[in-house]
Design a protein around this nucleic acid. Structure first.
Lengths: 157, 157
DNA sequence: CATATTTATATGAAAATTCATATTTCCTGT
DNA sequence: ACAGGAAATATGAATTTTCATATAAATATG
């Protein structure tokens, strides 16, 4: 089996390994903004929850967990904390009483919207340092990778 | 400011957000292999340490931490555990007595080499599901992103 | 060459995370 | 309507992780 053609061919494996590149790129790209999130008094998973709810309020825990890339039992705990803090409100779903739906409070929504705006601005800066349309291309490639790997179930829509 | 042209334009932010795409792609792409790593009795950071040491044995803690994407004080603890388990050996650097260099034991090297082989195989499968040369392109894009964001210091080489 | 800085690693307490499993509700086939 | 299983969420104990800081060695500075 042939080696891939990325590493400086000093024989090293890690620097050209796809999973390393993905993790390292994610880390590096997120570092600044995540630091900003922390100065706003949020942990990264909390920011993700706010952003997801800002897209779709009233999501159930399981769905939120998938979208926010958080394991379910952990999310349950985070949601409880965010509730105590007044950022979200949990409410049983009458349609299916196993479900708990999570809604932004006014305070939560305000914070979410502020941070999403910051995120958009920051993303623009990132994309600009990615010379010439590369940004759009990398996004497309990533989405396609994600779709192939984690086919969204139909009820996901 | 214009919105980017990726999401299905249902007005949602998250699905087209670069940092989300990076994190989600990293998660999705790594899931299978990381599960494999766990069946080998390793946690993900431990696998990363082995892979990095397999590339460059005798790295110092700080360097290892940067490469393996692990925070320093955490790595110190992981290294201690891996030492107790016989996978690595720690040794003070006589050149600079603050430094601790980490070396693979024979057992550690054997495990590292086995897993790197598995990783190569798995990576091939991933790249194949990424039709037509897309794999090479995405790798290039990610490396370039990383380089722009985290310029390696000269002594890093 | 003494002192201030910086660099490398370690440490401990607080907090977060994981993992397995409990609980409740819903769904399915009979 | 009922048994069995599946789905959604919660829980608790064990383990990890984080964060701030300690220690120690090297380097820079006046």
């Amino acid at each position: 089996m042939e080696r891939q053609g990325l590493e400086a061919d000093t024989g090293e494996f890690v620097p050209g390994y796809l999973l390393y590149l993905l993790a390292a790129a994610s880390d590096a790209a997120s570092a600044q903004f995540h630091a900003h999130v922390r100065t706003e008094g949020l942990r990264v998973p909390e920011w993700r929850v706010l952003a997801c709810l800002n897209d779709r309020d009233g999501a159930m825990i399981t769905r939120l967990a998938r979208f926010a890339l958080i394991e379910q039992s952990r999310l349950t705990k985070i949601i409880i904390q965010m509730g105590e803090r007044g950022l979200i409100r949990r409410q049983g779903d009458p349609e299916d009483r196993r479900r708990v739906r999570v809604y932004l409070t006014d305070e939560g929504r305000a914070l979410a919207q502020r941070l999403v705006a910051d995120a958009r601005t920051h993303e623009q800066k990132l994309l600009q340092m990615l010379e010439g349309g590369d940004g759009a291309r990398i996004k497309l490639a990533l989405s396609s990778l994600i779709e192939r790997l984690a086919p969204p179930s139909e009820n996901e829509k």
